[in-house]
């Protein structure tokens, strides 16, 4: 499995579609910086409290177009490099070749793991880059609670950590983003068992993401909407239970698909 994992990792990260995926994220980040951060440099001490990078970076606010575009389109972008690999392998002979050499279980485990890693990295790297870029322009001043300058409150997830150690808060929240988008990306692999259309496989994570958003909006439970609660500024506040349930629910599709494939008697699609 080690060799197969190495091969799949190379395939996922040494891939011409990875570049446009990263360009999207980094491009939005640079645009955001020029549109919203650069003009603020002369106004850092103009308000009640100095402007802080923690409240102005791409993940720290929810008023800009760039942050909305990022958190809207990142499920598609994450699936671009590797989302259709299962279907391509099944359509060609490489899937069968891998299975007869290594077995079905390592094959499907590797696929899920690599898609998780791809999704996590494509989602997190541009955010890290943006945070670094913003911190280079604005001071990373520890936000002050009670001034109402930040949307994070005590009811928010890790709210206390945000005001005590905001840098760790950002890192932990980016970890949560990585976990969620990585898990979401595994749906593109699982979709390969139910559709022969590679575009459907690539878009399945996005549709799941939108379905959660619509469900939350419909029943007025905005804590279900990942496009809101995944932002470090927490446009919608969620709980650990809901976050865990959504991640587990997403993973269950992947596990179900893997289980079904391994138990299939007639082999590859």
């Amino acid at each position: 499995m080690k060799h197969y994992l190495r091969m799949e990792l190379k395939r996922a990260f040494w891939n011409r579609r990875l570049l446009p995926a990263l360009i999207f994220g980094f491009g939005l980040s640079v645009w955001h910086c020029f549109a919203y951060i650069v003009p603020l440099r002369g106004w850092i001490f103009a308000g009640v409290y100095p402007l802080s990078a923690y409240n102005r970076w791409l993940g720290g606010e929810y008023y800009s177009l760039q942050s909305t575009l990022f958190y809207l389109l990142v499920p598609i972008v994450c699936a671009l490099p590797y989302g259709d690999s299962w279907l391509c392998d099944c359509a060609g002979s490489i899937g069968g070749q891998a299975v007869i050499r290594g077995g079905k279980r390592p094959f499907v485990q590797t696929k899920l793991l690599v898609s998780f890693l791809t999704g996590a990295l494509i989602a997190v790297l541009p955010l890290l880059f943006d945070f670094a870029l913003t911190s280079a322009m604005l001071p990373a001043i520890v936000p002050k609670a009670g001034l109402g300058l930040s949307p994070i409150s005590t009811k928010s997830l890790l709210g206390d950590l945000f005001y005590a150690k905001p840098f760790w808060y950002v890192l932990v929240y980016l970890g949560i983003n990585g976990l969620f988008f990585g898990s979401l990306n595994t749906l593109s692999i699982a979709a390969g068992l139910f559709t022969a259309n590679r575009y459907m496989a690539i878009l399945t994570p996005f549709f799941c993401y939108m379905a959660l958003h619509c469900a939350g909006t419909t029943i007025q439970r905005f804590e279900l909407c990942p496009s809101g609660f995944l932002r470090p500024c927490q446009q919608f506040i969620t709980t650990w239970v809901i976050l865990g349930a959504e991640v587990m629910g997403i993973w269950s599709f992947g596990v179900f698909a893997a289980f079904r494939y391994i138990r299939e008697e007639h082999g590859m699609r």
Partner: peptide, 10 residues
């Protein structure tokens, strides 16, 4: 800086 940009879902 106080506004919240949300897409009309439906």
């Amino acid at each position: 800086s106080d506004s919240s940009f949300q897409l009309p879902a439906y």
